[in-house]
Design a protein around this nucleic acid. Structure first.
Length: 566
DNA sequence: CTGCTTTTT
DNA sequence: ATTGTAAAAAGCAGA
């Protein structure tokens, strides 16, 4: 939202809405003349070149607005968010779509205003009266949709979720987007050199091994080399032909073939190069010298946020090469980065929601949950749990959260289908409360058509009424998973609002920068370190009172990777 | 524009 | 009788 196109909240809608509210105008056609005194603030804004020039698709750049002294205030409703809490699964929450569906009104499109393709004119060249009407139509629709949505929100008991969480979160996210995060450009460019040289070397080896040059990024060409020329076995199919994904290449590599190993190295390097090393430096804002993501508040059907332009929620960490990229995210000079992670939040929520005694006790006892799970399902003393047992227990714990079946589990653990089936049976024997809870969620969803989180966030699951078994099975997994993932999303949103509030009342200079689902990243002013740590840990751990403790791990460092243990 | 692949939680 | 794990964003190729 800070940068461009994809808007979630606080775009021109709210600016114009404010202007309109002041004018008490409800009819697009009866707007006061632009020259009238009451329209002056809007006119000034529309005519300010530093603002007009930055508009994309008729939406003003938030950074430009902020530089022009315009800030988000007085925000107390957003039709997009109202639509999102009413039905997070719908395809679009766009104002135009909502206006058509709920008000039977076809809105002027951006193309209507400025044209499209070659004949399109820039937004700042369209007549200011037309820009006014375009903006005010949005405000008008927003106000009318409020009348439609408010009774629905009330009857579905979603008012608290919207007014208590989603609306207050708008300003928190806007502030995070505006603040941005710094990256170490020299570090990025030296990594680029290193990775590029390495990738080119691997490329050469691939051509030699294959005996021909081809486009490695082209799946059809790659299939031809692997499965026609070299006659390697086809282990998996996609809808368009033999698959060449990482699991296939790994298996082929294990059979002793050279090319698959090289291909995996190539893919890892080129992914890091293209997606991060090339893209991120280009997105550094020249005005702020920092990277400004957009947090989308209305795309994930579970209630999670998403991040885009650039996506800062999928910065690598698992493999060593990727970890180098995380090292490039840095605080401003003499400040520190701090990360605060919820420990096992989804499993804790599963324990809380299911009230399973064994699970609840394990968390109340503290310690390593996967280890304790292993002791229970393999029936050995805690001290005798081996690495393999713990790792398997961990996999099964995650499989449970996702409603995974024996087939998927066997593949993941590399064991027989029957053995996986036994693991699962054993698991639910020990955790009967979990079994009952998951079954109850599916039953509730079949009965009511939706499931909900602790805070009443709903997700409708029409798939459960489908004839197709696969679609229905998908619906069952959604019913089991969404209350857990969604409740976790609710919790961290509440914590973010309270932390932001704490920062303000305590007049702290430190900033919240990023949210990565169960983690918050902060840039901390040196003298505020103790205060910030205490505040963040407290608010995250007390976002709600559950029957198991919520635990947050803090880490401090000179780059994002440094904030992580080991 | 769609499909495939890869990155994260 | 049937399922080969939830949620995202993004780059590339090829039509």
């Amino acid at each position: 939202m800070l940068s461009k196109k994809k808007k979630t909240n606080g775009d021109s809608t709210s600016i114009a809405a404010r202007a309109l509210r002041q004018n008490r105008a409800t009819q697009v056609r009866n707007l006061p003349a632009l020259d009238s005194p009451e329209m002056k603030p809007l006119k000034d804004l529309l005519e300010d070149p530093s603002v007009r020039k930055t508009a994309q698709n008729g939406k003003f750049d938030q950074l430009a607005l902020r530089c022009a002294g315009v800030r988000l205030t007085g925000l107390d409703f957003d039709p997009m968010l109202a639509s999102y809490v009413l039905d997070p699964g719908r395809r679009s929450h766009g104002l135009d779509v909502l206006a058509l569906e709920f008000l039977d009104h076809t809105m002027t499109s951006y193309a209507d205003l400025c044209g499209k393709g070659r004949s399109a004119i820039p937004f700042d060249e369209c007549p200011v009266e037309a820009a006014r009407d375009y903006s005010c139509e949005e405000a008008d629709m927003a106000l009318r949709l409020r009348q439609v949505f408010e009774p629905q929100l009330e009857s579905h008991e979603l008012t608290r979720l919207l007014d208590g969480i989603e609306i207050p979160l708008i300003n928190v996210l806007a502030e995070m987007e505006w603040t941005g995060i710094a990256i170490d450009l020299p570090w990025f460019s030296s990594l680029k050199q290193r990775f590029q040289a390495e990738r080119e070397a691997v490329e050469k080896q691939i051509y030699e091994t294959a005996g021909t040059e081809f486009n490695i990024n082209s799946n059809p060409q790659l299939r031809e080399i692997l499965f026609d020329k070299l006659n390697l076995p086809i282990l998996k199919r996609t809808s368009t032909g033999p698959s060449t994904d990482a699991s296939v290449l790994t298996e082929l590599a294990e059979e002793g073939h050279v090319l698959p190993t090289l291909l995996m190295e190539y893919r890892e390097l080129s992914k890091l190069e293209n997606t991060y090393l090339d893209a991120l430096p280009r997105l550094v804002n020249p005005k702020t010298g920092r990277l400004h993501t957009s947090f989308n508040q209305t795309v994930a059907s579970t209630g999670r946020l998403s991040s885009g332009d650039p996506n800062l929620q999928n910065i690598p960490i698992r493999r060593e090469l990727g970890r180098d990229i995380r090292r490039g995210f840095i605080p401003r000079k003499n400040w520190q980065l701090m990360a605060a992670d919820y420990s096992q939040i989804e499993l804790r929520l599963l324990a809380h929601l299911s009230r399973d005694p064994a699970f609840v006790e394990a968390f109340q006892a503290g310690g390593d949950i996967h280890r304790q799970t292993a002791a229970l399902i393999f029936d050995v003393p805690l001290a005798d749990v081996t690495g393999t047992m713990r790792s398997r227990a961990k996999t099964i714990n995650f499989a449970t959260i996702y409603g995974q079946g024996p087939h998927a589990l066997s593949r993941q653990l590399g064991i027989e289908h029957a053995e996986a089936k036994e693991f699962i049976a054993r698991y639910f024997e020990r955790f009967q409360g979990v079994r009952n809870y998951l079954d109850a969620m599916v039953a509730f969803a079949r009965e009511n058509g939706y499931v909900q989180t602790i805070f009443g966030r709903r997700r409708y699951i029409p798939e459960l009424r489908e004839r197709n078994f696969n679609v229905r099975a998908f619906g069952e997994r959604v019913a089991a998973n969404s209350p857990i993932q969604g409740s976790a999303a609710d919790l961290i949103k509440i914590a973010m609002i309270r932390i932001d509030d704490g920062f303000r009342t305590k007049d702290l200079r430190s900033k919240m920068l990023l949210q990565v689902h169960d983690e918050l990243v902060f840039e901390v002013f040196p003298s505020e370190m103790d205060q910030v740590q205490e505040l963040v840990k407290y608010e995250m751990e007390h976002a709600a009172q559950l029957s198991v403790p919520l635990v947050v791990d803090l880490g401090v460092g000179k780059n994002w990777l440094d904030t992580k243990p080991s």
